[in-house]
């Protein structure tokens, strides 16, 4: 019959795939053998170096090869230090290629430990590193996957190395949260940026309230809320205002345990000496026992403390 497509059976496809894999494996073995043999004789062999590039692009998790490349880069650095005029430029050009390689490898596997580490290691060696580009890369990979912890780690490394530009990092953090606020890393990162004072605590409270009002069942923002509440810069009036807001939220969502829990944090269990709201807390813990029976024991314990306190007052 004419004009009909012939399609391979799944068996044929499987066999084909296996054949391809075998071919890949052979290439990998041959490449590794070549590299290891030249490395043993302590030679920087450009051919082996080239093969390692190819192998890493396919599988960036062969840490032996990253170590091999580090050795070669050190030789290169040694060489360049002999040339006083052009040395730095030559080294920079060589290392730039290495940096682009890690970028290629990250496309293959954005969670490759080896690629991220190697990149940072190369930057340390670089006579003139472009840090802005690194921040950009970090941001880019977080937009692909905002739970890629390598990016968060890398960003911390960068900040430890070159210091923090507060407005830029605040903006970065806000962008991350605007993108998806159900992310512990984003909230935690934000909490590491600065000490809260009277001026900025208001902004943080607004931000975190936006999150808990949008989705009170999402725990990530509540943890940040708790952290902000623990700040001594929070005034008494502000506390009262927050308590009113939470009452309002509870009216809208009476079954959400986080709201009641936040009311407990707010009325003093974070600052145990505060005895003003003890009677209220007794009530809150009773509500929590109903709302969150799996943690009943914990709430009963707190309830006991609160009740004792109330009796002593």
């Amino acid at each position: 019959m004419h004009g009909r497509l012939k399609v391979k059976t799944t068996e044929e496809q499987k066999a084909e795939k296996q054949k391809e894999q075998q071919k890949k494996l052979q290439l990998y073995r041959a490449g590794m053998k070549k590299i290891l043999s030249t490395r043993a004789s302590d030679l920087y062999d450009p051919e082996s170096f080239g093969i390692s590039t190819q192998l890493l692009c396919v599988n960036p998790d062969i840490y032996t090869l990253w170590n091999y490349r580090k050795e070669v880069l050190l030789i290169e650095k040694e060489e360049s230090s002999k040339d006083e005029i052009e040395g730095d430029n030559k080294l920079a050009a060589f290392l730039d290629k290495e940096i682009s390689l890690t970028e290629q490898c990250l496309i293959a596997n954005p969670k490759s430990y080896g690629s991220w580490h190697h990149r940072y290691w190369v930057l340390m060696l670089h006579p003139n590193p472009n840090w802005d580009k690194e921040f950009g890369l970090c941001t880019k990979y977080l937009t692909y996957d905002d739970r890629n912890f390598h990016c968060w780690d890398y960003r911390r490394l960068l900040i430890n190395k070159i210091g923090i530009t507060l407005p830029a990092e605040i903006k970065f953090s806000t962008d991350c949260l605007n993108n998806n606020f159900s992310n512990y890393s984003s909230w935690h990162y934000r909490s590491t940026l600065r000490q809260l004072d009277e001026n900025c605590i208001e902004d943080e409270l607004n931000l975190v309230q936006s999150a808990v009002f949008t989705d009170p069942a999402d725990s990530s923002a509540w943890f940040y809320f708790r952290w902000v509440l623990s700040n001594p810069a929070l005034s008494k009036e502000k506390r009262q205002e927050l308590l009113d807001n939470l009452e309002q939220l509870q009216e809208l969502d009476p079954d959400c345990k986080w709201v009641v829990l936040a009311k407990c944090w707010l009325t003093g269990s974070l600052v145990l000496s505060d005895s003003e709201f003890v009677d209220k807390r007794v009530q809150f813990y009773k509500e929590l026992i109903e709302l969150d029976p799996t943690r009943k024991g914990q709430y009963e314990h707190y309830l006991k403390i609160a009740e004792e306190k109330l009796a002593n007052n």
Binding site: L177, N178, N179, N180, F181, Q209, S210, A211, F213, T214, D215, P216, N245, Q248, L249, L252, D253
Partner: peptide, 21 residues
């Protein structure tokens, strides 16, 4: 989306809850 509601400057926190609900 949920993120848009969170980030919107034009919607008060209570409205956010009402809308999401």
């Amino acid at each position: 989306s949920r993120s848009d509601v969170f980030a919107s400057q034009k919607v008060s926190v209570v409205e956010k809850r009402v809308l999401m609900k």
